[in-house]
Write a protein that binds this DNA or RNA. Structure first.
Lengths: 298, 298
DNA sequence: CCTCGTTATGCTCAAGTTGAGTATATGGCA
DNA sequence: TGCCATATACTCAACTTGAGCATAACGAGG
């Protein structure tokens, strides 16, 4: 239910993000074009929308045939509640952790880090000439994956993907090397691959939203108007990929003025009925940076 | 000395940011093209570089003549130490607070807010129909400029510029309305204007760097390899536009592991000689988000 | 060489925040 | 009724922040 993102048009190799041409003439801004385009193609009305990053032709893995027009891609991140999408592209929701299994720490450290990533990074570092190049590799790996007591930084999603790409642990790396005519080394191919550079874009988006969470109440874009605190917490946990301390989470959002109780109860919880809360818009006026996440796990 | 940004080519109306065409073919990424371009045009080697935002034709104030090619502008933020720039465009350094006088709270609340902005926003709110539209305007103004006890959020530079534009308090607003054939209302024209939408871009950049400061040690890009703590503090203050408590700043950067003393002293300070410090790179490995925590950052 | 102004540095303290519990409440259901 | 599950309430120590007082060490001017 939580932790998913729209993706569409299964292609030759893997999933792709929804994309299409923009006509800067038709609307006043890119963002308006985007909203219209998504509504037409999927029936979804976007709420929160944020520009992510712009890539030029040569940044991208897809090789442009000689004579084809130059392509600039402007990637956007949008938050939508998970309604059923419609439309000709047959877009489908995907759990984003199928693309980034190493990002999901909700039940402890993911297996794949201990079993595959950490050893591979260790080998990769050891292949560098001894001394400072080797130290640099070790340091970079340590920072990205929180290896040697460095602590996991949930926001560094892009750092981690780029490192895995460089080290050759994701399929796109082999695909691109083969296309470039280089040696076609085979590695484990962690997580589901995506076409073109879409997995890189997705990593940018996930990192961005994890960061934003700390100082802007964007979670509420993904929830109905009212919800229990457990539901809110579950969504936050899906976003940051960490498990949070329940009592402290309640204290944080309640005394932080992010939510207010409605007085009504939801008794479908299985235990004691939970109070139903709503987002307190006034918090935007009261606090400088109203957000949710403390890196505290379990 | 501090608080400035490269701008070039005084044009018909005001300053402009350095800009030029990018050839995505010549370099592998936009960023490389940018670095090369800046080196050729100004002689400066960029250190930290970050993509800011991409604007389409119609986002921009400049009207494109019929038949002219479509233009997409990708704005970048770079941090450079203030060396003398060279080159054909005659670029010059500018204090950015001449463009945003309301952003400089280093000596208390800027006059222009109390004298001009707050009253104008109040009038603007009062012009809306009573009830919730009027309340929304009042709330928006309050959040942006920290008016009714809301507290100043240094990061909201873009919010503030856009509000002033909308309310008609910056010259660009009148320029664009006139061009669009609308009524040419005259207002105070706060701060120095810039051509096209460059002041908007600059606002985006200033906001971005202020935010980044909290969790990445970007300040050190603007300092020589060694420095006194006062020098470091002054640069941070210039960036965030606030004055900081000296003893606490020292405690923050020293016990936070951001800097380490060299044992040497600088006695050109006028009082007791200051110890000379350097950036501690290891902090990147040790802490999740090493940055300068500011008053009410969270 | 003594004093004063100036900047640097050291230290304290109260208030607030965080991390990690323990304890109690209240529903459904066997 | 009693058990299980979840919700909610409260506690407490460790740590962080905001603010200020106190002391150190230089140069300038008498």
């Amino acid at each position: 239910m939580e932790g998913s993102l729209a993706s569409a048009r299964d292609g030759a190799e893997g999933d792709v993000l929804p994309y299409g041409p923009l006509d800067p003439e038709a609307d006043r801004t890119f963002e308006l074009t985007l909203r219209r385009w998504v509504r037409e193609r999927t029936g979804l009305d976007l709420g929160y929308v944020e520009q992510l990053y712009t890539f030029g032709d040569r940044d991208r893995s897809a090789q442009r045939p000689v004579g084809a027009p130059k392509v600039i891609s402007v990637a956007y991140l949008a938050l939508v509640r998970e309604d059923r999408p419609t439309g000709p592209d047959r877009p489908r929701w995907r759990d984003w952790y199928t693309f980034f299994p190493w990002e999901d720490w909700r039940q402890d450290q993911p297996e794949v880090i201990r079993r595959t990533i950490a050893p591979a990074l260790s080998t990769w570092a050891a292949q560098a000439p001894r001394g400072s190049p080797r130290e640099e590799r070790r340091e970079r790996a340590g920072i990205a994956f929180g290896l040697e007591g460095a602590g996991w930084d949930a926001d560094r999603v892009l750092d981690r993907y780029e490192l895995l790409y460089e080290v050759g642990l994701v399929r796109e790396a082999h695909r691109d090397r083969k296309r470039a005519g280089a040696d076609p080394t085979q590695g484990p191919g962690l997580g589901h691959a995506m076409d073109m550079d879409h997995r890189r874009i997705l990593a940018t988006g996930l990192g961005r939203i994890r960061g934003k969470l700390r100082y802007r109440p964007v979670v509420f874009e993904l929830l109905p108007g009212t919800f229990t605190l457990l539901r809110l917490q579950t969504v936050v946990e899906a976003l940051v990929g960490l498990r949070l301390h329940k009592q402290n989470f309640r204290r944080l959002v309640e005394s932080g003025g992010l939510v207010e109780g409605t007085g009504k109860l939801d008794s479908r919880t299985g235990g004691r009925p939970a109070e139903i809360f709503r987002f307190r818009r006034e918090v935007l006026r009261e606090r400088r940076a109203p957000g949710v996440v403390l890196p505290g796990s379990r």
